[in-house]
């Protein structure tokens, strides 16, 4: 065996494993998406095992496209992902700029800040929806009660009481309801992923050209214009990468949505796939193919960016 062949052969196990891992399930999903395949059907028992004789063509795709949940799920997926991206990037840049310069306890603050990122998603969701956002027992409920108590006391004051009695009582919000459960998911995921953005932006800020900055200070550039014309352009690439990596992760959010509301009024594509798959594997597979397409649109951009730096 030649000098170069053996070393190259060393990558074959990894390549083969990943090839099988990708092609087999994806091929099966594609196959299932074109046949009638359900888990239970007493009248048509032949549909309960996958077979080419149950060919349905694009029927599953039509069924999925025509279900009103599909449009809602896409809308909701995008609403959740875009909101999280918006919040994490803005908070991430602000916090990274804030803690990038040395101050007493910088190391400890970094450790405090990064911690949420390592909390497992299920714990994150259980903690937030029960102990923080619950309208009665959570901190939210406790805080609203506290404010109302203070207001009650103010109302009994001799003169100003009349003024305060014009104020309404505050109502705690239930984050398990249809309209609010997406907000709860956005809050908990933002809490978890802002640290990730901060960490990446900080890493990038450390390679910022300090001489250029000093020159700008000597030229009398304001803090804002330093940020606007030096720091922000420097962060352009990391921001793009944070956006794309998060988009890929958050398009497949599941645990948080399941735990907050069991998808009540707040489904995303993975959740919809799960619901279809309770019985209709064909429809679930067709939805899965749509999810693959959506993820690929994001992935192409990410791969291009990463590819550029690969061989530097």
């Amino acid at each position: 065996m030649s000098d170069r062949k053996l070393p190259r052969l060393l990558q074959t196990p990894a390549v083969l494993l990943l090839l099988v891992w990708m092609l087999v399930p994806l091929g099966m999903t594609l196959y299932f998406s074109f046949i009638r395949y359900v888990l239970n059907n007493l009248r048509r028992p032949e549909w309960t095992s996958p077979s080419l004789s149950n060919w349905r063509g694009f029927g599953n795709y039509e069924f999925v496209l025509n279900s009103k949940d599909f449009v809602l799920a896409i809308q909701n997926s995008l609403f959740i992902v875009v909101s999280i991206l918006f919040l994490t990037v803005i908070l991430g840049v602000l916090i990274a700029v804030l803690i990038n310069k040395a101050f007493p306890g910088q190391g400890i603050v970094r450790v405090l800040l990064i911690s949420p990122f390592f909390v497992m998603p299920a714990v994150n969701a259980v903690l937030w929806i029960n102990m923080i956002l619950d309208p009665v027992l959570g901190l939210q409920g406790i805080a609203v009660n506290g404010i109302n108590d203070v207001l009650d006391n103010l109302r009994t004051m001799p003169v100003l009481g009349g003024f305060f009695s014009l104020w309404p009582e505050f109502e705690p919000i239930s984050f398990r309801a249809t309209q609010t459960s997406a907000i709860a998911v956005i809050m908990m995921v933002t809490w978890q992923w802002t640290p990730f953005a901060v960490l990446i932006f900080m890493t990038s800020l450390q390679s910022e050209d300090q001489q250029q900055k000093e020159a700008a200070v000597l030229d009398g550039a304001s803090v804002w214009s330093q940020f606007r014309f030096l720091t922000l352009p420097h962060l352009g690439r990391p921001i793009a990468i944070v956006v794309m990596i998060q988009a890929i992760f958050h398009l497949s959010l599941y645990a948080e949505i399941e735990i907050v509301s069991r998808g009540n009024g707040n489904k995303n594509l993975p959740y919809l796939i799960g619901e279809f798959a309770n019985n209709n594997i064909g429809a679930a597979s067709a939805t899965g193919i749509f999810a693959v397409i959506l993820a690929n649109i994001v992935a192409i951009f990410l791969l291009r960016m990463v590819g550029k730096t690969l061989m530097e």
């Binding site: 399930p25 890929i248 796939i273």
Partner: peptide, 26 residues
């Protein structure tokens, strides 16, 4: 090599929900 690396990365972007049921079946 570069293409192999990029392709490996792309397998990471396959949404898990899309291939879960074949995996359960297998």
């Amino acid at each position: 090599t570069k293409d192999v690396l990029m392709w490996m990365l792309s397998t990471k972007m396959l949404p898990a929900a899309a291939v879960l049921y074949p995996m359960i079946y297998l």
